[in-house]
Simulated assay, not measured.
Amino acid sequence: MTLIYGHRGAKGEAPENTLVGFQQCLTHGVRRCELDLHLSKDGELMVIHDPTLKRTTGRRGKVVEQDAEDLIHYDARQGGPGWKHPCPIPRLSELFEKCDFDHWQLEVKSASRVRAARTVLAIRELAEHHGLLERITVTSGSREVLRALKRLTPELSCGLVAEYAWLDPLKVAKQYGCDLLALKWTLCTPERIAKARQQGLHVSVWTVNEPALMRRLADFGVDSLITDYPGLAVTTLRNG
């Protein structure tokens, strides 16, 4: 059975990477989610996709230049589906407290060596505090982040985010000891999926929003789909 992950919560249904988006995902019975992380100036894990605030909050500046206490008061519902009430940027700790997901894909964007180290150590500490080590896979397309995971937090499950095939994603995933391959849907072939699964990788494909594509990828044998529309995915896959 193909599993479903809500992309940035439920990006097509509610403001991305906000508490209401993750709650929306859960209302469909989808108990897996994908989200993006950046560190605040004071080292807290903030749930936001871009390194800058402009696209989702309309504010100027970078996440890393602001303290968490300020960031959680910024309304992040800009540019998404309409929503009546303000939707603040959440701390990851808030989502861990309020959303009971079976599994979390936590994507860390590219980072310097120092920043990558600080980020993965912060994730481990928070995951341990909430008893969620077994329910988390930290994913990244950044070699620096994958290296930090392997070196500093080997107890965390890790995954490669692959958007291009200029390097063989399966070789890279093996090199860094990944458990999961988050593959852009355009890179999906039945052969690649079969090889990945032989290698023991969970193949999670993004971003899949069309019912026909959902069905096709499920037929290919992918382990999970990451979608902006978890409600649509549930209906589509349930009806085969």
Rank of each mutant, 00 (worst) to 15 (best):
Q199R: 09
N209H: 09
D179V: 03
E155P: 00
A182Y: 00
W185A: 14
I72A: 05
W185E: 12
C99D: 03
E94P: 05
L149Y: 01
E134P: 05
E134I: 06
T207R: 07
H85Y: 12
L106W: 08
A127V: 03
A122K: 07
T119D: 04
C188S: 09
Q78W: 10
D168Q: 11
S112T: 15
S112Y: 13
E191M: 11
T189E: 09
A127M: 11
P154R: 11
G200R: 03
L156Y: 00
R197T: 09
R197I: 07
L149R: 02
L92N: 01
W104K: 05
K98P: 03
A127Q: 04
D100V: 07
A76V: 07
E163Y: 12
D100L: 09
K171S: 10
L121K: 10
I193E: 00
W185G: 11
T153F: 03
T186R: 14
L126G: 03
C188G: 08
A196S: 02
P86H: 06
V114L: 15
H73Y: 11
K174M: 06
A117C: 10
P86M: 04
I136K: 03
V145D: 00
L160A: 05
G177D: 06
G177M: 06
A116Q: 00
L149D: 01
E155H: 07
V203C: 08
D100S: 12
K98H: 14
G79Y: 13
I72V: 15
R192L: 13
T137G: 02
W83T: 10
E125D: 13
A76Q: 04
Q175D: 13
L132I: 04
Q199L: 13
Q175K: 14
P154I: 12
S112F: 10
A182Q: 06
C158Q: 13
H103W: 10
I89M: 01
I193P: 00
Q105C: 10
A194R: 13
T119W: 04
C158D: 02
Y74Q: 05
L106E: 04
G177I: 10
Q105K: 14
K171Y: 15
L183W: 06
Q78A: 09
E155V: 06
E128Y: 10
L133E: 11
L149C: 10
L95N: 02
W83Y: 11
F101P: 01
T186H: 13
E125G: 12
K174C: 07
P190E: 14
V120T: 00
F96S: 01
P154E: 07
A182L: 03
